[in-house]
Simulated scan of single mutants.
Amino acid sequence: MNTVKILLVEDHMVVRNGIKLLLESEGEFTVIGEASDGVEALSMLANGLAPDIVLTDISMENMDGMELLKVVVQKYPLVKVVILSMLNQIHYVVEGFDHGLAGYLLKNVGYHELLFGLKHVADGGRYISEEVSMALLEQVSSGQVYTAVEKGMTVDLDINDRELEVLALIADGFTNVEIADRIFLSKRTVEGYRQSLIDKTKVKNTAELVKYAFQHGLLK
């Protein structure tokens, strides 16, 4: 039986190793390459690596997952791209599928859903994890409309993917120490991101930051 060949792109080695072990515990998948960012992944593809699926995070240095997606879709149309991220903001999902994304999964997804989603993509389908699908359904049922203005706000504020990741965890009520543990950063670095977000949004404190983020479409 042919296995599904995966190029795994993730900047945290511990997380990458965990995902690799999880995938290879299932006989249908083989991780044929590992990269820490989009630049390294593209170099491997240029050197002849031929995965069926590129499984990538969004927030990475040098080249993030969204930029990697755009290049892979153009240069390697037979390779499918699936995002596996902690970020469940709807604008990432919309942008990704606008550019040819094959799947969007959250890192808190269950073992069986992860495998099912990847198998579905390998068979030619597209997949969105259940939690993201429900968020989209809630937006539709409540009459909310995703707009290009919302999509562009992060660019106007010059908020990067890592800051958005920290912002989402702040909104979920995690402390600096807890955020640092979850995304493998130092407490001081997380504190720096929090202050940077406050400065960029011109709010006074964390409570106002979270309120601002929801009001202006940074978080859903």
Rank of each mutant, 00 (worst) to 15 (best):
A102R: 02
Q195V: 04
S25F: 15
L105Q: 00
V72I: 01
M1P: 09
L87V: 00
V132E: 00
A50V: 10
F214A: 05
E130P: 13
L45G: 02
V155G: 07
R188T: 13
E130T: 12
E34F: 11
Y127T: 03
V82K: 12
I128R: 07
G192M: 05
F97T: 09
L167F: 09
N176P: 13
S141Y: 14
V81H: 07
I179P: 03
L7S: 02
M66L: 13
I179E: 01
P77D: 09
L169P: 11
E28Q: 02
S25W: 14
L8E: 03
M63K: 13
H112A: 11
I19A: 15
T147I: 02
L55S: 01
H112V: 11
D98T: 08
S133V: 13
D37C: 09
M60E: 08
L164A: 07
D123N: 15
K187A: 04
V145N: 05
H120E: 06
Y212R: 06
G103F: 08
V149M: 10
S36V: 10
G173C: 01
P51A: 00
V132A: 10
N205Q: 09
G65T: 04
G18M: 07
G152W: 15
V166L: 12
M86E: 09
A41Q: 03
E131N: 14
I179T: 01
K200P: 03
G27R: 04
S36L: 07
A213K: 07
K20T: 03
E131H: 14
A135Q: 14
H91S: 14
L197F: 07
E67F: 11
M134F: 15
D52P: 07
I159H: 06
Q139I: 05
V15H: 00
Q144N: 14
G38P: 04
D156L: 15
I90F: 13
L218E: 11
K204Y: 12
V79R: 04
I183K: 01
V15K: 05
N47K: 14
E165F: 10
M63S: 09
Y193P: 09
T147S: 06
R16A: 08
L157E: 00
Q74E: 10
G100H: 01
G152P: 10
F184A: 10
G143Y: 08
M86G: 14
N17T: 03
V81N: 02
N108R: 11
T175Y: 01
G110M: 13
R182L: 11
T3F: 09
S129I: 04
D52S: 07
T189N: 00
D158H: 14
A207Y: 14
F29H: 00
A171K: 02
I179D: 03
G117D: 00
V109A: 02
L106V: 13
T147Y: 03
G152H: 14
R16P: 06
D98W: 04
L8I: 08
D172P: 06
A171F: 08
L169F: 14
A180L: 07
N2G: 06
M44V: 08
T30D: 03
V82S: 11
V121W: 08
S196N: 06
V166H: 15
E130L: 10
H120R: 02
A213Y: 08
L115I: 12
E95W: 11
R194Q: 10
L84W: 11
L49T: 01
G143N: 04
V4L: 03
D98F: 07
V14G: 06
G125L: 01
E178M: 15
R126H: 13
V79D: 06
Y193Q: 07
N62R: 15
